[in-house]
């Protein structure tokens, strides 16, 4: 297989995963103006829940293909449980506070969830590899790709489309946009702002958990995965523009393709190029590629 095809396939596969793990972070910032450090923990809880439930299905003797809807169900479950709990219990109290307070609060939630996960799932890794290989492989010129990579791309595209449809094509999306632009005026016009915030954060939590649940079959679900993912998610979010989901998708694609290119030609610099890109963009456009006024429209 020629190098360009390799770069495209690997880059898109990595970008799909990056988009899944960062879309919720971008969305939450867009609506609530909260940089959620605990986003990585929601991703990890999604991974743990997905791995546990998929493991139960696979060991029960049921059709193994059921593992995929179970992974999706796990993400929805985590989002529905933790989203409202965190938003109503904690975040709502600091919307009017300084950004440092929200950062500290979400960092505290991150630490609490880290220990909570250890209490619930222990420290031994949870390994559920079967769904990764179950769909088969595609051989392309001597390089084999698991079809799961393409499934992940499909899930990322569907998640992106779903966000776009909800925000740009529904009444609820218009209400979200109104809240983003001016919370007070929206409330004065009769919009139930607290409800919008709860639903929006729950959606962001679902996206984080979705990224975790569909990553679980590819990795060892173990303590510490939250912190590892949050750094990359922040890089993608900053490159695309804080709060801009479309920008996040472009940012993920740029990072994915750049890293795949580096691995082919300069593997020692594969990490450097990602953060070099972030640095250059911050210097040239501090608001990110698609930041600025457009940010508030998500």
């Amino acid at each position: 297989m020629d190098t360009l095809t390799l770069i495209l396939l690997d880059g898109i596969a990595f970008a799909s995963w990056l988009f899944l793990v960062s879309a919720g972070l971008t969305f939450a910032y867009g609506v609530l103006r909260i940089l959620n450090i605990a986003h990585g923990s929601l991703y990890a809880v999604g991974a743990y829940t997905g791995a546990t439930l998929a493991g139960l299905v696979l060991h029960s003797g049921a059709n193994p293909l059921l593992a995929y809807p179970v992974l999706l169900g796990a993400a929805l479950l985590v989002g529905l449980l933790l989203g409202p709990l965190l938003e109503r219990g904690f975040l709502r109290r600091v919307y009017d506070q300084d950004e440092v307070i929200t950062l500290l609060l979400t960092f505290a939630i991150f630490l609490i969830l880290e220990d909570g996960m250890k209490l619930v799932w222990g420290v031994s890794p949870i390994i559920v590899a079967e769904p990764y290989a179950l769909l088969g492989q595609l051989a392309l010129g001597g390089v084999t790709y698991p079809l799961y990579s393409f499934l992940l791309t499909g899930v990322a595209i569907l998640a992106g489309l779903a966000l776009w449809v909800v925000i740009d094509r529904t009444r609820f999306g218009k209400l979200i946009t109104s809240v983003i632009h001016d919370r007070e005026i929206s409330a004065a016009l009769g919009v139930n702002v607290p409800r919008i915030c709860t639903v929006a954060f729950t959606g962001a939590a679902m996206l984080a958990a979705l990224g975790g649940a569909f990553t679980a079959p590819m990795v060892s679900v173990t303590p510490g995965i939250s912190a590892d993912v949050i750094v990359l998610a922040f890089a993608v979010t900053v490159i695309g523009g804080l709060g801009n989901v479309g920008g996040g998708a472009i940012g993920a694609l740029l990072v994915g393709l750049l890293r795949a290119t580096a691995i082919q030609f300069l593997p020692a610099l594969d990490l450097f190029v990602v953060y070099a890109l972030m640095t250059v963009i911050l210097l040239v456009r501090p608001e990110g590629l698609f930041g600025g006024v457009e940010v508030r429209r998500i």
Partner: peptide, 20 residues
């Protein structure tokens, strides 16, 4: 000589290069 980040978790590109 490939140098993935510690606890990177994603080896898709590295495996492709090794296969190629």
């Amino acid at each position: 000589t490939l140098w993935p980040k510690l606890m990177q978790g994603q080896f898709t590109s590295e495996i492709s290069k090794l296969q190629a």
